[in-house]
Simulated assay, not measured.
Amino acid sequence: MKLHLTQAAGQQLITGYGADWIEVNRIRFTHSLLVQPVQVHEDWQTRDFNSLSAADFERIAALKPELVLLGTGAQHRFIHPKLTQSLTAAGISVECMATPAACRTYNILMAEGRDVIAALLLS
């Protein structure tokens, strides 16, 4: 699906997504990634929901976002609070949703100027 938003000058905008890809500023990625308004982190090693670890969320907490949107793949799944303890301790909210919903929500929050990270899993 292609997403349409006027412009986000200098920002990382999710411009499309499919079952096995995510497009940021018209650049296609076929692996899990972290997207912030100022940067795309292609080196997020997490491949799927079942391989998420506390270390994944510690890395995100170190980036100090206001909010984390966890795109859990095709299905909406909930993460165990034990894994997101580092986010909670830092006062960072985390919302779980299917990856397509996380992509759409990220664009809205980013356009509002929010300091958000989309942690997007493809499977």
Rank of each mutant, 00 (worst) to 15 (best):
H4V: 13
A8K: 14
A9G: 13
A9S: 15
Q12V: 01
Q12I: 01
L13V: 13
I14N: 06
I14V: 11
I14H: 05
T15M: 05
T15A: 02
G18S: 10
W21R: 12
I22K: 03
V24R: 09
N25V: 07
N25L: 10
R26E: 15
R26Y: 15
I27N: 14
L34E: 07
V35C: 04
V35Q: 07
Q36N: 08
V38N: 14
V38F: 14
Q39A: 14
Q39L: 11
V40P: 07
D43F: 09
D43M: 02
D43T: 12
W44G: 01
D48Q: 01
F49T: 00
S51P: 07
L52R: 01
S53P: 03
A54L: 10
D56W: 06
D56Y: 08
D56A: 02
F57V: 03
E58T: 08
E58A: 11
E58Q: 15
P65E: 04
V68G: 04
G73N: 00
H76A: 11
R77P: 03
I79H: 08
I79S: 06
P81H: 10
L83Q: 10
T84K: 10
T84G: 04
S86M: 06
L87S: 04
T88I: 14
G91K: 05
G91V: 04
S93D: 13
V94Q: 11
C96T: 13
M97C: 01
T99S: 02
T99H: 00
P100V: 02
A101Y: 05
A101P: 05
R104S: 07
T105F: 06
N107R: 08
N107I: 02
I108A: 11
A111Q: 15
D115I: 09
L121K: 00
L122R: 00
L122V: 00
